[in-house]
Amino acid sequence: MFNWLLASPDATERVPEDKIDSTYKKKQIGVLVATSFSYIAYYIIRLVFTTEQGAIMKEYGFQLHKLD
Results as ranks from 00 to 15, higher is better:
3 N>I: 08
15 V>T: 01
13 E>W: 10
37 F>E: 06
64 L>M: 09
36 S>T: 14
46 R>E: 00
42 Y>V: 02
44 I>Q: 09
19 K>W: 01
12 T>C: 07
13 E>A: 09
25 K>W: 12
49 F>N: 14
22 S>E: 05
33 V>N: 00
22 S>W: 05
56 I>N: 06
20 I>Y: 04
11 A>K: 12
4 W>P: 02
63 Q>K: 14
19 K>N: 02
14 R>N: 11
19 K>A: 07
4 W>F: 09
20 I>D: 02
14 R>A: 10
40 I>N: 04
35 T>W: 05
38 S>Y: 04
2 F>V: 04
20 I>S: 07
34 A>V: 07
8 S>N: 07
25 K>R: 10
3 N>C: 06
47 L>G: 11
13 E>H: 10
47 L>W: 10
26 K>S: 10
45 I>T: 15
36 S>N: 07
13 E>R: 14
39 Y>V: 08
55 A>I: 15
5 L>Q: 03
58 K>P: 02
65 H>M: 15
52 E>P: 04
55 A>Q: 13
50 T>R: 15
49 F>S: 11
30 G>M: 03
6 L>Q: 02
25 K>C: 11
10 D>G: 11
26 K>T: 12
25 K>I: 14
9 P>M: 08
30 G>E: 04
19 K>L: 00
10 D>A: 09
38 S>Q: 05
1 M>V: 06
19 K>E: 00
46 R>I: 02
62 F>N: 01
23 T>Q: 12
53 Q>Y: 10
3 N>R: 00
13 E>V: 04
54 G>Q: 04
18 D>H: 15
64 L>T: 05
2 F>K: 00
25 K>M: 12
15 V>Q: 00
47 L>R: 13
3 N>D: 13
9 P>F: 08
26 K>C: 07
31 V>G: 06
51 T>F: 07
31 V>A: 10
